[in-house]
Write a protein that binds this DNA or RNA. Structure first.
Length: 510
DNA sequence: CTGGGGACGGGGCCC
DNA sequence: AGGGCCCCGTCCCCA
């Protein structure tokens, strides 16, 4: 047993994990079920009888939760079954399906024959065991359609909740994780996340997503949390539906793949063979990295700090975290006494000494020491100033985009495009560029020719040799007066949006 | 809004 | 192949 380093007199809470507890608990409950011990509920289906524990059934099934009044918000009396041993007739679920569902409830593993998949799915649906229903539906090839036709409310909510900041695929995946994985894929009875990682699949009870000879074993998970962004392409979906063997469906963590596609594409070593995540379909590069990635789906955090109880998905993260307790700061600044936990902290810090601000906003030219600060700046509204008034003089030269560019502002004819907010955003065709909202073209639906962006980009390149080539994908189009000094006789309040500030040598409009 | 610290996930390299 | 270690990019939070 590890000793816990604590300062004298400290009386902090210590969390000592027992990762095996959940599976052992489940295993013992299952043994009780098999021997009929402490069973207080008997399920029947077409004559077959299945002694169970109502607490287990309530934990695993929405139907029984409601039946027993155990659902959150229920008063605990209405519709509840008495405390004695009761019998619940479930003829609508076939004996085989019920048996499989009970097996799942007590082992976190669904063992079924392919031919019985639909019955199990329907039974799971009826009993409100959603993860099983979803898993079966996916295997039956109905997931894609279902997902398209009727997106889950929870997905929609999560998506909506994060919609403001979802900027790119990564963000969406993140948003998905944030909204979905606080409740990771887990068996309802599991205190800890039930194993879906390969390591834990070795557990005889829990594990294994293995393709049986005739049957199929699924770990208690499901792919229902598949993020929208990561929905596989039609080909991939088709592939996963029909072409692949059953055992390599998304629940099979041994799915590997992409044979040939990435392997031959310049990867130097076999150990770098990418593997495809069975849940999000993401290609994970690097040998042995898939289990690590899978923990982002399962929520499993096997590495816990014995000093403060914080848990991590990865050992290396825990190791870095431990530096906080040991006081180790292995990255000293050569210019000052500052020391840092992370190399990148030192890197950031060094930019303070040097005064380097290599990350410049392509719009307002404000420079930042950190790239993420620039991204934040651009995502916010701080450089999305716009002018809603129209120029008094209609620029005739707009037919020649490069000529319209002055001071980083693209001149547009008044009949062109202006959102209700008076700003226009568009994205360049740069896959690597920072993401942004799609173009706001709501005024007359005038499409935005990409040539304008290229013109803008060209302008930026030409404007100054000092300027870094920007990866900007987001910019504003502002109405620009012909002469900066020229005063507009129109609304005074809008004049404030035209003040000039300086960043470095560049004068911009604010 | 910005600067800074920290957490998290992915990829590369190595054993 | 699996895993440790490291670096990097990104995001979140707080001051």
């Amino acid at each position: 047993m590890k000793t816990v380093a604590m300062s004298p007199g400290e009386d902090g809470l210590i969390g000592i994990p027992f990762p095996e507890h959940s599976s052992e608990l489940l295993s013992r409950l299952n043994a009780q079920r098999r021997s009929g011990l402490l069973c207080d509920l008997t399920l029947t289906s077409r004559g077959a009888r299945y002694p169970t524990h109502r607490s287990v059934m309530a934990a695993v099934s929405l139907y029984f939760r409601r039946l027993f009044g155990a659902e959150e918000g229920a008063d605990g009396t209405e519709g509840s079954v008495g405390t004695g041993c009761s019998v619940c007739q479930l003829d609508c679920v076939s004996p085989d399906a019920l048996d499989a569902l009970l097996e799942f409830a007590y082992t976190a593993t669904l063992t079924i024959r392919s031919s019985g998949m639909r019955e199990v799915m329907e039974g799971a649906q009826l009993l409100g065991i959603q993860c099983v229903a979803d898993a079966c539906r996916h295997i039956l090839g109905e997931a894609g359609e279902a997902g398209k036709e009727a997106p889950r409310p929870v997905d929609e909510d999560g998506y909506r909740a994060q919609s403001r900041r979802k900027q790119d695929r990564r963000n969406v995946a993140k948003a998905w994780r944030n909204t979905q994985t606080p409740e990771p894929i887990r068996h309802p009875l599991s205190e800890y996340e039930l194993p879906t990682s390969p390591k834990q699949q070795e557990h005889p009870q829990n594990g294994a997503t293995r393709g049986g000879q005739q049957g199929l074993v699924l770990n208690g998970g499901g792919d229902r949390q598949q993020p929208q962004e990561d929905v596989p392409s039609e080909e991939e979906e088709e592939e996963s539906r029909g072409e692949r063997p059953v055992s390599s469906l998304p629940f099979d963590l041994t799915v590997q793949a992409e044979a040939g596609r990435s392997v031959g594409g310049g990867r130097k070593r076999k150990s770098q063979t990418p593997q495809q995540c069975p849940v999000c379909q993401k290609i994970i590069h690097g040998a042995g990295k898939l289990p690590r990635h899978m923990r982002t789906h399962t929520g499993e955090k096997p590495f816990q700090c014995m000093a403060c109880g914080v848990r991590f998905t990865r050992n290396d993260k825990l190791k870095i975290h431990m530096r906080k307790h040991t006081g180790e700061r292995p990255y000293p600044c050569p210019s000052c006494p500052a020391r840092f936990l992370h190399s990148y902290d030192l890197k950031n810090h060094l930019s303070l000494h040097s005064g380097d601000r290599p990350y410049e906003c392509p719009l307002c030219h404000k420079a930042f020491a950190r790239e993420d600060h620039l991204q934040r700046h651009r995502k916010g509204h701080s450089c999305l100033e716009f002018r809603t008034r129209r120029p008094r003089k209609v620029p005739e030269e707009h037919s020649s985009p490069p000529d319209q560019l002055q001071h980083g502002t693209l001149r547009l004819p008044p009949t062109s495009v202006c959102s209700s907010a008076g700003q226009l955003l568009f994205q360049q065709d740069n896959p690597g560029a920072a993401p942004c909202r799609p173009a706001l073209l709501d005024s007359g639906g005038v499409s935005y020719p990409s040539i304008l962006w290229r013109a803008m980009e060209g302008h930026h390149r030409a404007a100054s040799m000092e300027e870094r080539e920007s990866s900007a994908s987001l910019t504003n189009i502002m109405w620009e007066e012909e002469d900066e000094e020229e005063e507009d006789e129109e609304d005074g309040e809008e004049e404030e949006s035209c003040t000039q500030i300086k960043y470095g040598d560049r004068r911009i409009r604010e």
